[in-house]
């Protein structure tokens, strides 16, 4: 049965929708759009659909990926059109492509690019931003604490930070980070934010965080999943 990749965005108030709720929203949108989802076998059939990488509540996703199996082939533009007239405010399909190969998207996601737009709590200079960024990059290791199933674990996120840039535009701090994503070496955006604050730049409470895109990795090089 044909598999499709769907690129979508989750912006505005919709960024407060959780991962599981988003899956439900898509399932319902497919049904409203009368798109024939393929279901798993067994006692409790569910649609063969997966979101490539969960996005934390509160972060806007600019180019998120979802994969779904349909029971029959359909024209890609038609899928886009129908979904976009069936999705709630803030969730929008940007494109649909038939998926090639058998490897699930979820297993192919290795990198994510995030950006942060923050109004600092106090006056700040471009130089301070640059210094904080380079001091982080100069570290050999950056240990963060994560609680996994109720137990606190220490993780070195330095190897997971692939690139980090920062600048000041009209008093607003803009950070761009490319980090490892997925099952190996995953780095969370709020960890980057916390480390930058430790390094001396006050990002402030009202930071807006975006995930700009998801990518694969082949021998240390970023590859497009689209």
């Amino acid at each position: 049965m044909p598999k499709y990749k769907i690129m979508f965005s989750k912006t505005g108030m919709a960024r407060f929708i959780s991962h599981l709720d988003l899956l439900r929203i898509f399932e319902r949108a497919f049904r409203r759009a009368d798109l024939p989802m393929a279901f798993s076998q067994g006692f409790n059939p569910h649609p063969k659909m997966s979101i490539a990488a969960p996005l934390a509540v509160g972060i806007e996703g600019k180019q998120e990926l979802l994969e779904i199996e349909l029971t029959g082939k359909m024209e890609e533009n038609e899928i886009t059109r129908r979904l976009n007239s069936s999705l709630p405010a803030g969730v929008e399909v940007l494109g649909v492509k038939q998926a090639q190969g058998t490897k699930p998207l979820m297993a192919m996601v290795k990198r994510a690019v995030y950006s942060f737009e923050c109004m600092p709590g106090k006056e700040i200079k471009q130089q301070q931003v640059e210094q904080a960024v380079s001091s982080l990059l100069n570290e050999d290791y950056i240990i963060v604490k994560r609680s996994v199933k109720g137990r606190v674990k220490e993780v070195d996120i330095r190897p997971g930070i692939l690139s980090l840039e920062g600048k000041l535009t009209n008093g607003e701090i803009i950070i761009k980070a490319e980090v490892k994503s997925g099952s190996e070496g995953n780095v969370r955006p709020e960890e980057i934010k916390a480390e930058l604050e430790k390094a001396g730049i006050p990002l402030g409470a009202g930071c807006k965080i975006y995930r700009l895109g998801l990518y694969g990795d082949e021998k240390g090089k970023r590859i497009d999943l689209w």
Binding site: M13, A14, I25, G58, A89, G90
Partner: peptide
Amino acid sequence: PYVQKPARYAGGEW
């Protein structure tokens, strides 16, 4: 971002 289940207050549902 500072509350549990912020979707409770977001609106915009289908």
